[in-house]
Write a protein that binds this DNA or RNA. Structure first.
Lengths: 341, 341
DNA sequence: AACAATAACTAAACCGGTTTAGTTATGTAG
DNA sequence: CTACATAACTAAACCGGTTTAGTTATTGTT
């Protein structure tokens, strides 16, 4: 099972490396290699199980047939799912995926982008920390193919695939209001991410549209690093007799998970005392106690579209925008017991 | 921000490519490049933000500083977590990770291995379908560095990092028996995976040791593809008056999830009527209704060790086995409400 | 003064492909 | 018979690094 190289084929068949390379890249016809020679080459290559060295090929072609995926955290269900769809789609298109987690650190993200560029990825799919405008801008300026997912830079003119954060929360808030909840708390993470801002704005707009007064609004921002331990106290704070919320809307799935845990620990009845709903979900949200109403993100669409757009971009001949490359996807609203109907 | 190459540095500093290459690879001293020249080169490289093309470097060195990770499914929490730890550890060690999901298909796995080899990965971490002995054997014979994780081939002499499946289930079964459960059902997936067999054996051994009679054992095997829809019927079958189990042990987390769903749907009280426990868990097992007792796998250890072993293996100078490379990790047992104590 | 050793470099081969710019032999139009 | 196409190839440059095998100038040794 010795490894075989292009030149071995050439030598053994008494043809040039050129001929072999052309034929194996399906350029035999257009380069007028005779049918017969083509067949000999193909047969030989198959017989000895020839496969080209992708590094060599990549080096000479200037492309690696690899795309880089940078996400905040591969262990998070949401990103794991996206990674799955991205990988599957990329493979269909003939690309390999290298991935790395930035853990929300801009410097890490910056290093990852650099490192992936060194490795000659042909394109990048990035769910950015959104604190790395510099690198994104540089990519943009150098016309390097990339797509932002999940998070984008509102003031930068890039390709992206995101969801309608505003609309998703707006809908959820409206729903809670429609069920008669008057004092809805919004629990979010301290973050400058536009996605998070939009969710907050969606919540506020819904309250406004429903004529809820300013002092009946409760927004709690928890720290990314300490939200697990801070959750209980925060819940206690918004359930004091003075504020007593009758609903809590969590801006993301892991907050909802911890919120649920805290509420259950404190024996606050859901949804009777406090109704809850979440933006984004986890695979067990339909099994927890009670099942959590959630705004569902179209994970597969995000992954598929990101790859499609990127591939289009990488083809390079896109002076013509073949498709719209700024995509805002609609969310779904899944009603479960936790919101009281 | 023009891209700069090795030869540019050489040209502009009036030194040879060799000198630049040696210095930037920290081989300046051993090759007697003068301190002064070294400093000039390093300064220039830094100033113009030089970074080597990894394809070129990989090609000439014969290594890519990349490791391949092949798992059944990146969307599954268990593998997503492992992927996270593998990637983090690999990065520490200076490696990039490319990954792909086999979706339990041996042919897909085989293709992935091939494809990763073409891409010149320096080593592989594989959670195999365990139906691909051929490729694994070939890797073994060609001395290619690799480590199996989660699943291994019991009759092949490879490196691996797995958990004590037998022991984990044995412990769980014993625990249920200790709580007075007499008729414990075992729900598993139809599979030839050794891991699954071991879990079954652990269950049987525990019953044997406890003197449970043959006809008080209920093993149900569900199909990988249809377990979601088959679960309810299966549960119905083992809760008939004749068989009526008083406990169910699920051989893996997604079975437990669906089992819980079915039991809840049928209003079977857990743990009063039927106690349940699971091998392996999901992030919400402590929040579901009721929280599920589970055998916990040391995910981080699996990932970390896999990389450590692989790196050791890739260094190549391992005629001496620097460490034990067949590792069976202990599991943890996390008691929650679902098992009745 | 002759020779060896050492410091400080470099030219060129090499990794394994792709691609450009030809070459040679044969056929065909004028 | 000459000129020009065309079919069927190929030599060699190239991608951007690494590495081997030198080279040159200087210093040290006897």
């Amino acid at each position: 099972m010795k490894k075989i190289y292009l030149k071995d084929i050439a030598k053994n068949l008494n043809v040039s490396k050129t001929a072999v390379s052309l034929v194996l890249n399906n350029k035999g016809d257009e380069n007028k290699i005779s049918k017969e020679t083509q067949e000999r080459i193909i047969a030989y290559a198959k017989k000895y199980n020839y496969v080209p060295n992708q590094l060599a090929r990549g080096l000479s072609r200037g492309k690696s047939e690899t795309i880089g995926l940078i996400i905040p955290n591969i262990s998070d269900t949401f990103y794991a799912q996206i990674a799955g769809f991205v990988e599957a789609r990329a493979m269909e298109m003939g690309y390999t995926v290298v991935f790395s987690s930035s853990y929300e650190k801009p410097e890490k993200e910056s290093k990852l982008i650099q490192s992936m560029l060194n490795r000659q990825v042909d394109g990048l799919i990035i769910s950015s920390t959104q604190k790395n405008e510099e690198d994104i801008l540089r990519l943009q300026e150098s016309d390097f193919p990339f797509v932002l997912i999940d998070r984008h830079y509102p003031n930068l003119d890039t390709n992206y695939v995101i969801v309608d954060n505003f609309g998703g929360i707006y809908h959820a808030t409206k729903h809670l209001l429609g069920l008669g909840r008057k004092k809805i708390g919004f629990v979010t993470i301290k973050s400058e991410l536009d996605a998070m801002q939009q969710r907050l704005l969606g919540y506020i707009k819904a309250l406004d549209d429903h004529g809820v007064e300013q002092d009946n609004r409760f927004v709690s921002e928890l720290d990314q690093k300490t939200y697990v331990s801070d959750m209980a106290e925060m819940i206690k704070a918004v359930t004091t007799p003075e504020k007593r919320v009758d609903a809590l809307l969590f801006s993301t799935h892991y907050l909802a998970r911890e919120g649920l845990r805290a509420l259950n620990d404190m024996d606050i009845r859901i949804p009777d005392e406090v109704a809850i709903a979440s933006f984004s979900e986890m695979s067990a949200f339909d099994l927890v106690n009670p099942p959590i109403t959630a705004v569902i993100q179209p994970v597969q669409k995000i992954g598929d579209l990101a790859v499609d757009i990127l591939v289009d971009e990488m083809k390079g001949d896109n002076m013509i925008k073949t498709k719209d490359k700024r995509i805002v996807l609609d969310t779904n609203f899944k009603i479960r017991k936790s919101c009281g109907a």
